[in-house]
Amino acid sequence: MAEIILREAVSRGLREALDEDERVFIIGEDIGAFKGAYAVTSGFLDDYGPERIIDSPISESAIVGAAIGAALGGLRPIVEIMTINFMLLAMDQVVNHAAKLRYMSNGQMKVPLVIRTVTGGGGQLGATHSQSLEVWFATVPGLKVIAPSDPYDALGLLRTAIADDDPVIFAEHALLYRARSEVPDERYTIPLGQAKVKREGTDVTLVAYSRMVHVALEAAAILAERGMDAEVVDLRTLRPLDTDTVAQSARKTGRAVVVEEFWRTGGMGAEVASAIQEKAFDYLDGPVGRVGGVEVPAPYNGTLEAAALPTAGRVVETVENLYGI
């Protein structure tokens, strides 16, 4: 057991896969000579060579398409798309091809493909480089979507993703690469579709994923000082979505607020709130709250950007406004 950062956890998972299975290769922009835009694949080119660590041209659509083809041909590709903003160029291959081939071929085909990408704002990168679009992929049957909040989950879920025979989007938050947690030396995996209670509480449930788990935990600390004991549930995977764990918590606390970085309209908050009212309606003391990104493209200016992102303060305020405490 050792404390490591999320970047190391993902690197470790990738190295294991490369070591254990010759069919695994990694393809992406600047993952080799440049060592990865977020340094996750630093040293990989030296250790595994250019056949398995493929520096690709800037061609997101063809990178994903080629990975789909390689998967159909019996390999197990891992794609790195530098950030989720650039996934938009690959949207057709992901949504119209990767997600649908098993179904349209009635099971003749499978696409064991992992697409790792970097999500989130908060780095003052401006409107085109600060989005949290993993939610979009979570709306598509045929895809699975993972968005971990700490190194332990990242490694356990990445192992499962790589072993999965269907396409998986693995979204790493840019501001979490230095997040720390204990990670066992022995091998463990985490199944997809299992949320995790990160903090137990009795008065209100805060549901979040990725970086917003940390914001929710911060909010829980503030609420605790004000005499309110919050439970924090980390979704971990957006599809499959573990609505049972969330509903169970909501039944216990009778109150719930969903926190996400994505814009509120059509986000996970809407989906989770709907699941809670379906599964825990009779137990609720009031409406389910949602805290999301302000509905504007991300501004560059730091003060404006901070104002557009969910904060612990906004979560606390939402809880207090909704439940009158």
């Binding site: 480089h129 560059y300 404006l304």
Partner: peptide, 10 residues
């Protein structure tokens, strides 16, 4: 040029 909303790249 964009009131601080675009930044260097925009």
């Amino acid at each position: 040029s964009s009131g601080g909303k675009g930044g260097s790249m925009h």
